[in-house]
Design a protein around this nucleic acid. Structure first.
Lengths: 229, 229
DNA sequence: AGTGAGTGTAACCGAAATGTAATATATATT
DNA sequence: AATATATATTACATTTCGGTTACACTCACT
Protein backbone atom coordinates (compact mmCIF):
# COMPACT_ATOMS: atom_id res chain seq x y z
CA UNK A 1 0.00 0.00 0.00
CA UNK A 2 1.19 3.47 -0.81
CA UNK A 3 1.94 5.60 2.19
CA UNK A 4 -0.06 8.76 2.68
CA UNK A 5 1.89 11.92 1.93
CA UNK A 6 1.65 14.68 4.47
CA UNK A 7 3.03 18.19 4.19
CA UNK A 8 3.90 20.15 7.31
CA UNK A 9 4.13 23.91 6.90
CA UNK A 10 5.50 25.76 9.90
CA UNK A 11 8.28 28.24 10.44
CA UNK A 12 9.49 26.61 13.64
CA UNK A 13 12.07 24.17 12.36
CA UNK A 14 12.28 22.18 15.57
CA UNK A 15 8.59 21.60 15.57
CA UNK A 16 8.65 20.49 11.97
CA UNK A 17 11.34 18.01 12.76
CA UNK A 18 9.43 16.55 15.66
CA UNK A 19 6.27 16.21 13.62
CA UNK A 20 8.13 14.76 10.69
CA UNK A 21 9.92 12.20 12.81
CA UNK A 22 6.87 11.06 14.68
CA UNK A 23 4.55 10.92 11.72
CA UNK A 24 7.10 9.04 9.66
CA UNK A 25 7.34 6.57 12.49
CA UNK A 26 3.64 6.02 11.97
CA UNK A 27 4.31 5.10 8.39
CA UNK A 28 3.44 8.33 6.60
CA UNK A 29 5.65 10.07 4.11
CA UNK A 30 6.23 13.56 5.46
CA UNK A 31 7.59 16.64 3.71
CA UNK A 32 8.27 19.96 5.33
CA UNK A 33 8.12 23.58 4.23
CA UNK A 34 9.07 26.55 6.36
CA UNK A 35 6.68 29.09 4.89
CA UNK A 36 3.47 29.25 2.92
CA UNK A 37 5.35 30.75 0.00
CA UNK A 38 7.77 27.86 -0.02
CA UNK A 39 4.95 25.36 0.25
CA UNK A 40 3.08 26.89 -2.66
CA UNK A 41 6.03 26.18 -4.88
CA UNK A 42 5.50 22.49 -4.36
CA UNK A 43 3.18 20.29 -6.31
CA UNK A 44 0.60 20.24 -3.55
CA UNK A 45 -1.83 17.99 -5.33
CA UNK A 46 0.22 14.97 -4.35
CA UNK A 47 -0.44 15.35 -0.62
CA UNK A 48 -3.34 13.75 1.17
CA UNK A 49 -3.09 16.01 4.20
CA UNK A 50 -1.64 19.39 5.13
CA UNK A 51 -0.68 20.56 8.60
CA UNK A 52 -0.62 24.33 8.44
CA UNK A 53 0.68 26.71 11.03
CA UNK A 54 -1.66 29.66 11.30
CA UNK A 55 0.93 32.19 12.40
CA UNK A 56 3.97 32.33 10.20
CA UNK A 57 6.05 34.61 8.00
CA UNK A 58 4.42 36.64 5.28
CA UNK A 59 1.40 34.55 4.44
CA UNK A 60 -0.72 33.01 7.13
CA UNK A 61 -1.94 29.44 7.07
CA UNK A 62 -5.47 30.73 6.60
CA UNK A 63 -4.54 32.65 3.51
CA UNK A 64 -2.71 29.68 2.12
CA UNK A 65 -5.67 27.42 2.76
CA UNK A 66 -7.90 29.86 0.95
CA UNK A 67 -5.66 29.75 -2.08
CA UNK A 68 -5.79 25.97 -2.04
CA UNK A 69 -9.56 25.92 -1.83
CA UNK A 70 -9.85 27.94 -4.97
CA UNK A 71 -7.72 25.66 -7.04
CA UNK A 72 -9.65 22.58 -8.11
CA UNK A 73 -6.55 20.44 -7.92
CA UNK A 74 -6.01 21.14 -4.26
CA UNK A 75 -9.48 22.14 -3.13
CA UNK A 76 -10.31 18.82 -1.53
CA UNK A 77 -7.08 18.23 0.37
CA UNK A 78 -7.87 18.05 4.09
CA UNK A 79 -6.18 20.63 6.28
CA UNK A 80 -5.38 20.62 9.96
CA UNK A 81 -4.39 23.96 11.41
CA UNK A 82 -1.70 24.27 14.06
CA UNK A 83 -1.83 27.32 16.22
CA UNK A 84 -0.73 28.90 19.41
CA UNK A 85 -3.74 31.15 19.31
CA UNK A 86 -6.71 29.32 20.64
CA UNK A 87 -9.39 31.91 20.62
CA UNK A 88 -12.88 30.99 19.58
CA UNK A 89 -12.51 33.47 16.75
CA UNK A 90 -9.60 31.74 15.14
CA UNK A 91 -11.24 28.42 15.42
CA UNK A 92 -14.21 29.78 13.54
CA UNK A 93 -12.11 31.33 10.80
CA UNK A 94 -10.36 28.05 10.40
CA UNK A 95 -13.48 26.00 10.12
CA UNK A 96 -15.04 28.46 7.72
CA UNK A 97 -12.14 27.99 5.37
CA UNK A 98 -12.78 24.31 5.61
CA UNK A 99 -10.39 23.12 8.24
CA UNK A 100 -10.79 19.46 8.96
CA UNK A 101 -9.36 19.83 12.41
CA UNK A 102 -7.61 22.25 14.63
CA UNK A 103 -4.76 21.61 17.01
CA UNK A 104 -3.56 24.14 19.56
CA UNK A 105 0.04 24.44 20.57
CA UNK A 106 1.46 23.12 22.72
CA UNK A 107 0.14 19.71 21.78
CA UNK A 108 1.06 16.16 22.57
CA UNK A 109 2.41 13.96 19.83
CA UNK A 110 -0.22 11.36 20.67
CA UNK A 111 -2.89 13.92 20.04
CA UNK A 112 -1.49 14.85 16.67
CA UNK A 113 -1.18 11.23 15.65
CA UNK A 114 -4.75 10.54 16.62
CA UNK A 115 -6.15 13.48 14.70
CA UNK A 116 -4.09 12.85 11.62
CA UNK A 117 -5.28 9.28 11.59
CA UNK A 118 -8.89 10.31 12.02
CA UNK A 119 -8.81 12.87 9.27
CA UNK A 120 -7.09 10.53 6.85
CA UNK A 121 -9.58 7.78 7.52
CA UNK A 122 -12.47 10.11 6.94
CA UNK A 123 -10.83 11.48 3.82
CA UNK A 124 -10.21 8.04 2.37
CA UNK A 125 -13.83 7.10 2.69
CA UNK A 126 -15.18 10.33 1.33
CA UNK A 127 -12.69 10.45 -1.50
CA UNK A 128 -13.94 7.14 -2.82
CA UNK A 129 -17.59 7.89 -2.55
CA UNK A 130 -17.91 11.53 -3.29
CA UNK A 131 -15.30 12.24 -5.86
CA UNK A 132 -17.26 10.44 -8.53
CA UNK A 133 -20.36 12.44 -8.07
CA UNK A 134 -19.13 16.00 -8.00
CA UNK A 135 -21.66 18.24 -9.61
CA UNK A 136 -20.93 21.68 -10.89
CA UNK A 137 -23.99 23.77 -11.43
CA UNK A 138 -25.25 27.16 -12.35
CA UNK A 139 -29.01 27.48 -12.44
CA UNK A 140 -30.21 25.02 -15.09
CA UNK A 141 -26.67 24.04 -16.03
CA UNK A 142 -25.17 20.96 -14.46
CA UNK A 143 -21.93 19.16 -15.07
CA UNK A 144 -21.28 15.75 -13.59
CA UNK A 145 -17.55 15.36 -13.24
CA UNK A 146 -17.88 11.69 -12.52
CA UNK A 147 -19.57 10.57 -15.70
CA UNK A 148 -18.77 13.70 -17.70
CA UNK A 149 -22.37 14.42 -18.53
CA UNK A 150 -23.83 17.86 -18.99
CA UNK A 151 -27.44 18.84 -18.83
CA UNK A 152 -28.95 22.12 -19.88
CA UNK A 153 -32.34 22.82 -18.35
CA UNK A 154 -32.95 19.15 -17.79
CA UNK A 155 -31.94 17.66 -21.10
CA UNK A 156 -28.58 16.08 -21.71
CA UNK A 157 -26.21 17.66 -24.19
CA UNK A 158 -23.19 15.96 -25.75
CA UNK A 159 -19.96 17.77 -24.98
CA UNK A 160 -16.54 17.33 -26.47
CA UNK A 161 -13.55 17.18 -24.16
CA UNK A 162 -12.48 20.74 -24.85
CA UNK A 163 -15.95 22.10 -24.36
CA UNK A 164 -16.31 20.15 -21.14
CA UNK A 165 -13.03 21.32 -19.67
CA UNK A 166 -13.64 24.91 -20.61
CA UNK A 167 -17.07 24.96 -19.04
CA UNK A 168 -15.63 23.23 -15.99
CA UNK A 169 -13.02 25.95 -15.66
CA UNK A 170 -15.67 28.62 -15.88
CA UNK A 171 -18.03 27.00 -13.41
CA UNK A 172 -15.26 26.34 -10.94
CA UNK A 173 -14.27 29.99 -11.09
CA UNK A 174 -17.31 32.05 -11.80
CA UNK A 175 -16.81 35.79 -12.10
CA UNK A 176 -13.11 35.55 -12.81
CA UNK A 177 -11.54 36.62 -16.07
CA UNK A 178 -9.46 34.04 -17.85
CA UNK A 179 -7.02 35.20 -20.48
CA UNK A 180 -6.61 33.07 -23.54
CA UNK A 181 -3.22 32.03 -22.24
CA UNK A 182 -4.71 30.85 -18.99
CA UNK A 183 -7.40 28.87 -20.74
CA UNK A 184 -4.78 27.43 -23.01
CA UNK A 185 -2.59 26.29 -20.17
CA UNK A 186 -5.44 24.76 -18.26
CA UNK A 187 -7.47 23.08 -20.95
CA UNK A 188 -4.89 22.22 -23.55
CA UNK A 189 -1.90 19.95 -22.96
CA UNK A 190 1.56 21.50 -23.01
CA UNK A 191 2.77 19.59 -26.00
CA UNK A 192 0.43 21.17 -28.48
CA UNK A 193 0.68 24.67 -29.82
CA UNK A 194 -2.47 26.29 -31.04
CA UNK A 195 -3.42 29.78 -32.06
CA UNK A 196 -5.17 32.15 -29.71
CA UNK A 197 -8.04 32.27 -32.11
CA UNK A 198 -8.69 28.62 -31.48
CA UNK A 199 -10.04 29.61 -28.11
CA UNK A 200 -12.52 31.96 -29.72
CA UNK A 201 -13.85 29.24 -31.94
CA UNK A 202 -14.25 26.89 -29.04
CA UNK A 203 -15.93 29.59 -27.01
CA UNK A 204 -18.43 30.00 -29.79
CA UNK A 205 -19.06 26.26 -29.84
CA UNK A 206 -19.44 26.17 -26.07
CA UNK A 207 -21.83 29.09 -26.04
CA UNK A 208 -24.03 27.37 -28.58
CA UNK A 209 -24.19 24.16 -26.60
CA UNK A 210 -25.26 25.73 -23.35
CA UNK A 211 -28.05 27.63 -25.02
CA UNK A 212 -29.43 30.46 -22.96
CA UNK A 213 -26.49 30.29 -20.59
CA UNK A 214 -24.17 31.16 -23.45
CA UNK A 215 -24.84 34.74 -22.46
CA UNK A 216 -23.12 34.14 -19.15
CA UNK A 217 -19.83 33.66 -20.89
CA UNK A 218 -18.92 37.26 -21.40
CA UNK A 219 -16.09 38.62 -23.51
CA UNK A 220 -13.76 41.02 -21.73
CA UNK A 221 -12.23 42.83 -24.62
CA UNK A 222 -8.47 42.75 -24.52
CA UNK A 223 -8.39 40.31 -21.62
CA UNK A 224 -10.33 37.16 -22.31
CA UNK A 225 -13.53 35.54 -21.09
CA UNK A 226 -15.47 35.38 -17.87
CA UNK A 227 -18.48 33.43 -16.66
CA UNK A 228 -20.76 35.91 -14.98
CA UNK A 229 -23.43 34.79 -12.59
CA UNK B 1 2.31 38.09 -25.08
CA UNK B 2 5.41 39.15 -23.19
CA UNK B 3 8.27 36.68 -23.07
CA UNK B 4 9.62 35.51 -19.76
CA UNK B 5 13.08 36.82 -18.88
CA UNK B 6 15.58 34.30 -17.61
CA UNK B 7 19.07 34.93 -16.25
CA UNK B 8 21.71 32.23 -16.46
CA UNK B 9 24.66 32.56 -14.08
CA UNK B 10 27.52 30.13 -14.67
CA UNK B 11 31.24 30.48 -15.18
CA UNK B 12 31.39 27.96 -17.97
CA UNK B 13 30.85 30.08 -21.03
CA UNK B 14 30.10 27.20 -23.35
CA UNK B 15 27.38 25.97 -21.10
CA UNK B 16 25.85 29.41 -20.86
CA UNK B 17 25.77 29.66 -24.61
CA UNK B 18 24.06 26.32 -24.99
CA UNK B 19 21.46 27.19 -22.39
CA UNK B 20 20.89 30.61 -23.86
CA UNK B 21 20.46 29.30 -27.36
CA UNK B 22 18.12 26.52 -26.42
CA UNK B 23 15.97 28.54 -24.07
CA UNK B 24 15.68 31.38 -26.55
CA UNK B 25 14.51 28.85 -29.08
CA UNK B 26 11.71 28.10 -26.63
CA UNK B 27 10.68 31.73 -26.76
CA UNK B 28 12.23 33.02 -23.56
CA UNK B 29 14.42 36.09 -23.34
CA UNK B 30 17.73 34.93 -21.88
CA UNK B 31 20.57 36.96 -20.40
CA UNK B 32 23.87 35.57 -19.16
CA UNK B 33 26.35 36.44 -16.41
CA UNK B 34 29.61 34.64 -15.77
CA UNK B 35 29.78 35.13 -12.03
CA UNK B 36 27.56 35.90 -9.07
CA UNK B 37 29.29 39.22 -8.64
CA UNK B 38 28.57 40.18 -12.23
CA UNK B 39 24.97 39.04 -11.90
CA UNK B 40 24.38 41.05 -8.76
CA UNK B 41 25.20 44.24 -10.64
CA UNK B 42 22.21 43.70 -12.89
CA UNK B 43 18.66 44.76 -12.19
CA UNK B 44 17.59 41.31 -11.11
CA UNK B 45 14.01 42.22 -10.35
CA UNK B 46 13.16 42.07 -14.01
CA UNK B 47 13.77 38.36 -14.30
CA UNK B 48 11.12 35.72 -13.78
CA UNK B 49 13.63 32.91 -13.29
CA UNK B 50 17.29 32.43 -12.41
CA UNK B 51 19.45 29.46 -13.30
CA UNK B 52 22.35 29.49 -10.84
CA UNK B 53 25.46 27.40 -10.93
CA UNK B 54 26.32 26.24 -7.44
CA UNK B 55 30.07 25.99 -7.94
CA UNK B 56 31.60 29.04 -9.50
CA UNK B 57 34.24 31.68 -8.90
CA UNK B 58 34.27 33.60 -5.68
CA UNK B 59 30.68 33.46 -4.66
CA UNK B 60 28.64 30.27 -4.83
CA UNK B 61 25.16 30.07 -6.24
CA UNK B 62 23.87 29.29 -2.77
CA UNK B 63 25.36 32.45 -1.36
CA UNK B 64 23.92 34.49 -4.19
CA UNK B 65 20.47 32.96 -3.72
CA UNK B 66 20.62 33.82 -0.06
CA UNK B 67 21.36 37.44 -0.89
CA UNK B 68 18.39 37.51 -3.23
CA UNK B 69 16.09 36.06 -0.61
CA UNK B 70 16.96 38.86 1.75
CA UNK B 71 15.95 41.56 -0.67
CA UNK B 72 12.20 41.96 -0.93
CA UNK B 73 12.41 42.92 -4.60
CA UNK B 74 14.07 39.68 -5.55
CA UNK B 75 12.95 37.39 -2.74
CA UNK B 76 10.23 35.71 -4.72
CA UNK B 77 12.10 35.09 -7.95
CA UNK B 78 12.24 31.35 -8.56
CA UNK B 79 15.68 29.77 -8.71
CA UNK B 80 16.88 26.56 -10.29
CA UNK B 81 20.34 25.42 -9.23
CA UNK B 82 22.75 23.81 -11.64
CA UNK B 83 25.40 21.63 -10.10
CA UNK B 84 27.87 18.90 -10.66
CA UNK B 85 27.61 17.94 -7.03
CA UNK B 86 24.64 15.76 -6.49
CA UNK B 87 24.87 14.75 -2.90
CA UNK B 88 21.78 14.65 -0.80
CA UNK B 89 23.34 17.33 1.34
CA UNK B 90 23.60 19.85 -1.44
CA UNK B 91 20.11 19.19 -2.52
CA UNK B 92 18.90 19.94 0.98
CA UNK B 93 20.92 23.12 1.22
CA UNK B 94 19.42 24.19 -2.06
CA UNK B 95 15.85 23.54 -1.11
CA UNK B 96 16.32 25.18 2.25
CA UNK B 97 17.38 28.35 0.53
CA UNK B 98 14.20 28.08 -1.45
CA UNK B 99 15.32 26.44 -4.64
CA UNK B 100 12.45 25.71 -6.94
CA UNK B 101 14.31 22.95 -8.63
CA UNK B 102 17.67 21.39 -8.91
CA UNK B 103 19.42 20.10 -12.00
CA UNK B 104 22.57 17.99 -11.89
CA UNK B 105 25.25 18.25 -14.54
CA UNK B 106 25.54 16.78 -16.97
CA UNK B 107 21.96 17.32 -18.01
CA UNK B 108 19.99 17.04 -21.19
CA UNK B 109 18.58 20.14 -22.77
CA UNK B 110 15.18 18.54 -22.81
CA UNK B 111 15.36 18.13 -19.07
CA UNK B 112 16.25 21.77 -18.55
CA UNK B 113 13.50 22.91 -20.86
CA UNK B 114 10.97 20.80 -19.04
CA UNK B 115 11.95 22.06 -15.60
CA UNK B 116 12.09 25.67 -16.64
CA UNK B 117 8.66 25.35 -18.12
CA UNK B 118 7.32 23.63 -15.01
CA UNK B 119 8.69 26.25 -12.64
CA UNK B 120 7.43 29.15 -14.72
CA UNK B 121 4.01 27.61 -15.00
CA UNK B 122 3.80 27.07 -11.27
CA UNK B 123 4.67 30.70 -10.71
CA UNK B 124 2.23 31.98 -13.25
CA UNK B 125 -0.45 30.00 -11.50
CA UNK B 126 0.38 31.37 -8.09
CA UNK B 127 0.47 34.90 -9.43
CA UNK B 128 -2.95 34.40 -10.97
CA UNK B 129 -4.47 32.95 -7.83
CA UNK B 130 -3.19 35.81 -5.73
CA UNK B 131 -4.38 38.40 -8.19
CA UNK B 132 -7.84 36.95 -8.11
CA UNK B 133 -8.55 38.55 -4.77
CA UNK B 134 -6.92 41.90 -5.25
CA UNK B 135 -9.15 44.89 -4.87
CA UNK B 136 -7.72 48.31 -5.49
CA UNK B 137 -9.70 51.11 -3.98
CA UNK B 138 -9.75 54.80 -3.31
CA UNK B 139 -12.82 56.06 -1.57
CA UNK B 140 -15.73 55.29 -3.91
CA UNK B 141 -13.44 53.89 -6.59
CA UNK B 142 -12.87 50.16 -6.73
CA UNK B 143 -11.04 48.00 -9.20
CA UNK B 144 -11.38 44.24 -9.09
CA UNK B 145 -8.37 42.67 -10.77
CA UNK B 146 -10.02 39.27 -10.84
CA UNK B 147 -12.94 40.18 -13.02
CA UNK B 148 -11.56 43.47 -14.32
CA UNK B 149 -14.52 45.44 -13.15
CA UNK B 150 -14.53 49.01 -12.00
CA UNK B 151 -17.16 50.66 -9.91
CA UNK B 152 -17.48 54.36 -9.27
CA UNK B 153 -19.56 55.21 -6.21
CA UNK B 154 -21.34 51.91 -6.40
CA UNK B 155 -22.20 51.70 -10.07
CA UNK B 156 -20.21 49.72 -12.57
CA UNK B 157 -18.41 51.52 -15.35
CA UNK B 158 -17.12 49.88 -18.53
CA UNK B 159 -13.38 50.28 -18.95
CA UNK B 160 -11.17 49.59 -21.91
CA UNK B 161 -7.92 47.77 -21.36
CA UNK B 162 -5.76 50.87 -21.55
CA UNK B 163 -7.98 52.78 -19.18
CA UNK B 164 -7.99 49.88 -16.76
CA UNK B 165 -4.24 49.45 -16.77
CA UNK B 166 -3.63 53.15 -16.35
CA UNK B 167 -5.98 53.44 -13.41
CA UNK B 168 -4.42 50.34 -11.94
CA UNK B 169 -1.00 51.92 -12.16
CA UNK B 170 -2.24 55.04 -10.41
CA UNK B 171 -4.07 53.20 -7.65
CA UNK B 172 -1.15 50.91 -7.02
CA UNK B 173 1.10 53.92 -6.64
CA UNK B 174 -0.89 56.78 -5.29
CA UNK B 175 0.91 60.07 -4.83
CA UNK B 176 3.69 59.19 -7.19
CA UNK B 177 4.37 61.10 -10.40
CA UNK B 178 4.50 59.08 -13.57
CA UNK B 179 6.15 60.55 -16.63
CA UNK B 180 4.59 59.81 -19.98
CA UNK B 181 7.50 57.53 -20.72
CA UNK B 182 6.87 55.53 -17.57
CA UNK B 183 3.19 55.20 -18.31
CA UNK B 184 4.06 54.19 -21.84
CA UNK B 185 6.43 51.49 -20.77
CA UNK B 186 4.07 50.08 -18.17
CA UNK B 187 0.76 50.15 -19.97
CA UNK B 188 1.77 49.80 -23.59
CA UNK B 189 3.58 46.78 -25.00
CA UNK B 190 7.14 47.23 -26.20
CA UNK B 191 6.36 46.50 -29.80
CA UNK B 192 4.17 49.48 -30.40
CA UNK B 193 5.27 53.07 -30.79
CA UNK B 194 2.83 55.82 -30.02
CA UNK B 195 3.07 59.55 -29.56
CA UNK B 196 3.30 61.15 -26.15
CA UNK B 197 0.10 62.99 -26.90
CA UNK B 198 -1.68 59.67 -26.92
CA UNK B 199 -1.25 59.50 -23.19
CA UNK B 200 -2.97 62.84 -22.78
CA UNK B 201 -5.93 61.65 -24.74
CA UNK B 202 -6.21 58.51 -22.69
CA UNK B 203 -5.86 60.47 -19.48
CA UNK B 204 -8.79 62.58 -20.58
CA UNK B 205 -10.81 59.47 -21.30
CA UNK B 206 -9.89 57.97 -17.95
CA UNK B 207 -10.76 61.13 -16.05
CA UNK B 208 -14.18 61.19 -17.63
CA UNK B 209 -14.93 57.62 -16.70
CA UNK B 210 -14.10 57.95 -13.04
CA UNK B 211 -16.28 61.02 -12.67
CA UNK B 212 -15.61 63.03 -9.55
CA UNK B 213 -12.35 61.18 -8.94
CA UNK B 214 -11.01 62.50 -12.22
CA UNK B 215 -9.83 65.43 -10.16
CA UNK B 216 -7.47 63.13 -8.29
CA UNK B 217 -5.46 62.57 -11.43
CA UNK B 218 -3.43 65.74 -11.35
CA UNK B 219 -1.25 67.07 -14.13
CA UNK B 220 2.31 67.87 -13.11
CA UNK B 221 3.26 70.30 -15.80
CA UNK B 222 6.42 69.28 -17.54
CA UNK B 223 6.60 65.96 -15.73
CA UNK B 224 3.51 63.85 -16.13
CA UNK B 225 0.59 62.75 -14.01
CA UNK B 226 -0.02 61.80 -10.42
CA UNK B 227 -2.93 60.34 -8.52
CA UNK B 228 -3.33 62.43 -5.40
CA UNK B 229 -5.24 61.15 -2.40
C1' DA C 1 -9.51 2.20 -47.11
C1' DG C 2 -13.81 4.55 -45.33
C1' DT C 3 -16.37 7.10 -42.05
C1' DG C 4 -17.43 10.44 -38.66
C1' DA C 5 -16.46 13.04 -34.58
C1' DG C 6 -13.34 16.26 -32.71
C1' DT C 7 -10.58 19.94 -33.30
C1' DG C 8 -7.48 23.54 -35.44
C1' DT C 9 -6.97 27.13 -39.10
C1' DA C 10 -8.08 30.72 -42.38
C1' DA C 11 -10.96 34.26 -43.90
C1' DC C 12 -14.40 37.56 -43.67
C1' DC C 13 -17.12 41.02 -41.25
C1' DG C 14 -18.52 44.31 -37.93
C1' DA C 15 -17.71 46.60 -33.66
C1' DA C 16 -14.90 48.42 -30.25
C1' DA C 17 -10.67 50.33 -28.96
C1' DT C 18 -7.07 53.19 -29.84
C1' DG C 19 -4.07 56.57 -32.21
C1' DT C 20 -3.55 60.98 -34.67
C1' DA C 21 -4.30 65.54 -36.01
C1' DA C 22 -6.49 69.80 -35.37
C1' DT C 23 -8.10 73.08 -32.26
C1' DA C 24 -8.90 75.11 -27.76
C1' DT C 25 -7.36 76.13 -23.27
C1' DA C 26 -4.23 76.61 -19.56
C1' DT C 27 0.22 77.65 -17.56
C1' DA C 28 4.74 79.49 -17.52
C1' DT C 29 8.11 83.02 -19.00
C1' DT C 30 9.62 87.37 -20.42
C1' DA D 1 0.26 91.73 -21.29
C1' DA D 2 2.52 89.07 -24.96
C1' DT D 3 4.53 85.09 -26.20
C1' DA D 4 5.91 80.47 -25.91
C1' DT D 5 5.12 76.05 -24.13
C1' DA D 6 2.36 72.42 -22.28
C1' DT D 7 -1.86 70.13 -21.81
C1' DA D 8 -7.08 69.29 -22.75
C1' DT D 9 -10.51 68.17 -25.81
C1' DT D 10 -12.79 66.88 -29.83
C1' DA D 11 -13.53 64.60 -34.07
C1' DC D 12 -12.01 61.48 -37.17
C1' DA D 13 -9.04 57.70 -39.10
C1' DT D 14 -7.00 53.47 -38.33
C1' DT D 15 -6.09 49.38 -36.08
C1' DT D 16 -7.14 45.69 -33.30
C1' DC D 17 -10.15 42.42 -31.58
C1' DG D 18 -13.56 38.97 -31.51
C1' DG D 19 -17.72 36.27 -33.72
C1' DT D 20 -18.68 33.34 -37.06
C1' DT D 21 -18.52 30.20 -40.84
C1' DA D 22 -16.49 26.96 -43.82
C1' DC D 23 -13.12 23.86 -44.48
C1' DA D 24 -8.98 20.84 -43.60
C1' DC D 25 -6.75 17.62 -40.89
C1' DT D 26 -6.31 13.90 -37.50
C1' DC D 27 -7.50 9.91 -35.14
C1' DA D 28 -10.24 6.08 -33.63
C1' DC D 29 -13.03 2.66 -35.10
C1' DT D 30 -14.99 -0.10 -38.61
Amino acid sequence: MNAYRILVVDDEEDLCEILQFNLETEGYHVDVAYSAEEALKLDLAKYQLLLLDVMMGEMSGFKMAKILRDNPKTATIPVIFLTAKDTENDRLTGFNIGADDYISKPFSIREVQARVKAVLRRYARIAEEVQEYVLLTYEGLTMNLGNKKVTVDGSEVQFTKKEFEMLRLFLEHKNRVFTRDEILSRVWTDDVVVLDRTIDVNITRLRKKIGIYGKNIVTRLGYGYIFES
